[in-house]
Amino acid sequence: MSNGPVKGLDALKRMLWEENPVIGQILGICSALAVTNLVKNTMVMCLGLIFTLIMSCLTVSLMRNVIPRRVRMIIQVLIIAAYVIFIKIVLDAFLPEISNELGPYVGLIITNCIVMGRTEGYAMANKPFDAVLDGLGAGIGYSLVLLPIAMIREPLGLGTFFGVQVIPSDWTKWNMMVIAPSGFFALATYIWIVRALKSGGEKR
């Protein structure tokens, strides 16, 4: 991961495409696969991750001069965990059903490597403003991968979109699309398409 003098909006932009955390760096795959069988859950998960990223990047960046280097990892994890607990409590209060369905995956934002990667790789060495933009970019980049995958998996697998029936009920549901293996195949295909587009762009 390069830590060049990337500042401001460039820090945000590069996360969306060039250094997209999921496609480019293969981070945060766990939740990318697990929650993408329902668009609604994916949406909540993405918002949760964006919130965690922004807040923990901001906090780590503000504290970057007082965190001792030796224990920085554990401090970062604790900061992230604090925000994830906040998300969990909010979800339990306002969207208990989704919170139930997501189950452990909300808590697993803590070990989502994207968050650790951004705090350790960027926020520890940069000013709060840039760190927030960087975190926001990484979160949006993550959502840009998850949402399209969910939008394909849910209609094909359940015939619904956002919980609403969109495909006529005589459609034979592809049960395959909502269970585990299709998650792997969908993400692989997505990576394939994006990389093909990228290398096509380079040739031109």
């Binding site: 792997f184 195949f185 692989a188 990576i191 394939w192 990389r195 093909a196 290398s199």
Partner: peptide, 11 residues
């Protein structure tokens, strides 16, 4: 080549 590495591992 586009699928090499992570892509094929996922498949």
């Amino acid at each position: 080549p586009e699928l090499d590495g992570a892509g094929i591992a996922l498949v």
